[in-house]
């Protein structure tokens, strides 16, 4: 049976309970091609069921619920099955399994969590804010994983006096810090007016970027490895102004 769900944690946990005894279960929140002869069902989040699953899993391993949330944020197409196989093994063994590092389900889950965490770390560096006339900051991003709101605590801690918006243009949502509260909201397109000096600081940053490079030691391959081209879209230093 194929279990479609909307990608949310509650729906995942509901689907997990439904699929528990189904040996051929396939969980998916993306557009999975239907195999011939395979039945399918659309699973809606059922808070009561989700809570039951949550409670059960927490008995075996409290930390795994956070791990599942992280895996479901992944942009990988097989994230649903990675999370499913991981919780299935936890339920089977009835204990934490994260250090069983030669188990396939654990390897896949660990890798997935590592990639999401790594992208969060990268974006702590790669986010580029622009300043608006009132001093609020705006940063468009287009990450592989759904991490916009995970970036907020880091920037809030270092820029507590600056309201900011981190806009995931791919997923059309924004993580917002208004100076005291944090929330997320759907956001398709944003009209941003820039402060008077914004262009000049961007210009200086580009100058700096060019001056600090050592042209005779060109290692483009290495640069792209550390800073993949797909992330350049919103970095002023990688564009001519």
């Amino acid at each position: 049976m194929i279990y479609f769900y909307d990608g949310s944690r509650d729906a995942f946990l509901t689907a997990f309970l439904l699929a528990y005894h189904d040996e051929d279960a396939v969980l998916t929140s993306g557009g999975k091609q239907l195999a011939l002869g395979q039945g399918s069902v659309f699973v809606k989040a059922d808070p009561a069921r989700a809570q039951k699953a949550e409670k059960r899993l927490a008995e075996f391993d409290r930390q795994c619920l956070d791990e599942i949330s992280t895996i479901l944020r992944s942009g990988d197409l097989d994230r649903d099955m990675v999370a499913f196989r991981y919780v299935m093994l936890i339920s089977k063994l009835q204990k934490p399994i994260r250090s069983m590092l030669s188990e396939d389900a654990v390897i896949a889950a660990t890798e997935c969590i590592r990639r999401v965490g790594f992208e969060v770390h990268r974006f702590h560096g790669f986010v580029r804010f622009m300043e608006t006339p009132c001093g609020a900051l705006y940063a468009p991003i287009s990450p592989d994983n759904d991490i916009a709101d995970l970036l907020v605590p880091h920037f809030r801690a270092r820029l507590p006096e600056y309201p900011f918006v981190i806009h995931d243009v791919k997923r059309k949502k924004a993580a917002v810090y208004d100076g005291s509260h944090v929330f997320t909201a759907p956001l398709d397109r944003a009209e941003v007016v820039l402060s008077a000096d914004e262009q000049a600081w961007k210009r200086l940053w580009k100058d700096y970027y060019e001056s600090v490079n050592i042209p005779s030691r060109e290692r483009l391959h290495q640069m792209r490895g550390y800073m993949p081209v797909r992330y350049w879209r919103f970095m002023p230093e990688k564009h001519s102004l």
């Binding site: 560096g125 006096e161 490079n213 042209p215 640069m223 550390y226």
Partner: peptide, 23 residues
């Protein structure tokens, strides 16, 4: 952060990479 701007980041953080491969 004690008001104003900024804090430390114990693990360090790279913000960009130049064509010579340095951060």
């Amino acid at each position: 952060n004690e008001g104003g701007m900024g804090n430390g980041y114990a693990s360090g953080c790279c913000h960009s990479f130049t064509p010579d491969g340095r951060c």
